[in-house]
Design a protein around this nucleic acid. Structure first.
Lengths: 239, 239
DNA sequence: CGTGGGGTTGATTCTTATCAATTCGGGTGG
DNA sequence: CCACCCGAATTGATAAGAATCAACCCCACG
């Protein structure tokens, strides 16, 4: 049962009962593989679906009429994609596979079932949505008020913390174009800004991975406060 | 019972049973008045609280170390403020009264009760959180990828739709400084950009109210799609 | 009558975008 | 094995958009 990816993720937040695990595993029983650079919700059929992400990186994005693009979320394995879309008939954003991806689409009725059958899981999903909101808020602050270098530093730190792996070096399979579209910058300016961060001895990024040279310096430079990523409280405690 | 402000708001989305109304009214039984330009969560005591907003306008904001500010949400009467903060011990953003405000603080345990006692209200709150997320997403797109004039047009349209009042003219008690801090612009540039929108015959703004001169033109100019504000679906239908 | 906050306008500077050319590295086919 | 190609990254030159600084107006308010 423990090979389930979202179960692992959820278990980090709350201890789950057997019944709760069963409910959650229902969300992850239709795994499919999507190759890099394809849209998960391209065909109309799955427009009414959420996805659980088992392997690989994905993002939510929106294309504007003039061809520009804004990347809204970066999804890591164990996350549920599309929760915010539950209220719309047709999706407002598209999901793009940033690497090869394994994901499980599930209909939104299933989430209804989960919420109705377990108040505690309802609260857990509420928490997840709130955490996603907090990430969006930090992005607004970054894009709205921070210069490119600080913005980039903040973005890299967020991913570093979310990945939750030891060590300075971590895998970061994002092209500079994707990073730019996430941060409201041009790809060219991302390149220049990374050069600057490198020169300042803060981070080095090269072909698909990042190495943080000075964590404390980077945190201070980015004005990064990890509190928004770590919901630790009694909201989903047992009982 | 119907004098309750959030009840009116929620009833627009779903038909509520008697018991559900009782549960919701629990959230609104401690009205307080906050004068303009004061923070609702200034004192540590209410840092663990949500608020229901009964009268006036408020916003959520974040101050940066260098004195800059980012405004994150604009709250209108009938909204619940602070939902996304439920997972943090101390608030990540502050609530500011933009006009004189009447609001009801309530402890987050009360929301837990609501969710645990009514799966349907749980889904309703989930919907509200998802809608808030959608607004944040549109802001990210605006700030990240749209030039100032289009950004401003989008912002004004969003408020126009959210206010849900007939007519072209509506009350908009926001200083240009607040608008700028919401859109990642300087107050000076907001002034210039409003002048441009006026010259183009799209919107006129003067002391506290806005008048939309060309709604269709504005919608096209802003690339505005109101779908994200109107969750119409079976998610919270009866039963 | 002063006073102060919000708004307007002009001049200048700074940040970032855009355009264009070049390099680098990985994959493909001959 | 090498020539080729392509996408991504880098670098330089220029332009556009918005910030900043400063002066001024307007009006509500004491």
């Amino acid at each position: 049962m423990e090979e389930s990816c979202i179960l692992q993720q959820f278990a980090q937040i709350a201890d789950l009962s057997h019944d709760e695990k069963i409910l959650l595993m229902e969300l992850e029983k239709d795994p499919r593989v999507y190759e890099q650079d394809t849209h998960l919700n391209a065909n109309g059929r799955s427009s009414n679906c959420f996805f659980t992400l088992r392997r690989g990186w994905a993002c939510a994005e929106r294309e504007l009429a003039d061809g520009q693009r804004q990347v809204l979320d970066i999804f890591l394995p164990g996350q549920v994609m599309g929760l915010r879309e539950l209220s719309f008939q047709r999706p407002i954003t598209e999901f793009l596979a940033l690497t090869e991806v394994e994901a499980c689409p599930f209909p939104r009725e299933r989430l209804k079932t989960v919420i109705d059958q377990s108040p505690r899981l309802a609260r857990l999903f509420f928490l997840i949505l709130a955490r996603e909101q907090s990430m969006l808020v930090e992005r607004i602050i970054s894009i709205g008020r921070r210069p490119a270098a600080n913005r980039l530093a903040h973005f890299i730190l967020e991913l570093k913390i979310r990945l939750n792996e030891p060590g300075n070096r971590f895998c970061l399979p994002l092209s500079q174009a994707v990073i730019g579209d996430a941060l409201g910058l041009s790809a060219v300016h991302v390149s220049r800004t990374l050069k600057q961060l490198r020169a300042d001895g803060l981070v080095v990024m090269d072909n698909g991975s990042a190495c943080i040279e000075d964590l404390d310096g980077l945190i201070e430079f980015a004005e990064f406060n990890r509190a928004y990523l770590q919901p630790v409280d009694d909201w989903v405690s047992q009982g």
